[in-house]
């Protein structure tokens, strides 16, 4: 009987300690979430919804959405970004341009392609494929800057 009670208190003690630990963990995560700071050069792979670059991108892409015909292929170009970061930027752009197919420059597609440069915001029409980049310069359409 006594051994049973000891075991019971032992189990309780372990679970109470773990519960306290989890409470502190929650407190720390809430603190971290409420105090997130964003640096201007945060790469796209670390962007979050509440971050300034995303808000700027969303606004800039509204103009692009209006400027190109529905169902177009929009190529995202960003010479300042590493290829892996360009991939994340492309996915963010795709989220904000749901009426269009959004791709990276080297990805082959069919038909005409619109090329949008980040962060300048220039938009141009590329005639056919990746290898045929004869373009009509459409000027700056949406700039997140």
């Amino acid at each position: 009987m006594k051994r049973g009670q000891t075991a019971r208190w032992l189990v309780r003690a372990v679970v109470i300690i773990l519960a306290g630990w989890a409470t502190v963990a929650l407190w720390l995560e809430v603190e971290r979430a409420s105090a997130t700071l964003w640096l201007p050069d945060t790469p796209p792979s670390l962007w979050r919804f509440d971050s300034p670059p995303v808000q700027a991108l969303g606004s800039a892409l509204q103009a692009v959405d209006q400027a190109v015909p529905r169902g177009s292929v929009v190529v995202i170009e960003a010479n300042e970004l590493a290829p892996s970061e360009l991939f994340f930027l492309m996915m963010w752009c795709s989220y904000y341009l749901p009426r269009h197919d959004v791709v990276r420059p080297h990805v082959g597609t069919e038909g005409p392609r619109y090329v949008w440069s980040y962060p300048e915001g220039s938009l141009r029409l590329a005639r056919a494929s990746v290898r045929d980049l004869a373009t009509d310069d459409g000027g700056v359409v949406g700039s997140p800057r």
Binding site: R12, V15, A25, A33
Partner: peptide, 25 residues
């Protein structure tokens, strides 16, 4: 039947899941 285990177990699961869900998006 053990109130201590019930409540502390709920705190453990609830807080750990919330902490992870907030911190790991």
């Amino acid at each position: 039947g053990d109130m201590w285990l019930q409540v502390s177990g709920l705190v453990l699961v609830g807080c750990a899941c919330a902490a992870f869900s907030i911190g790991y998006f």
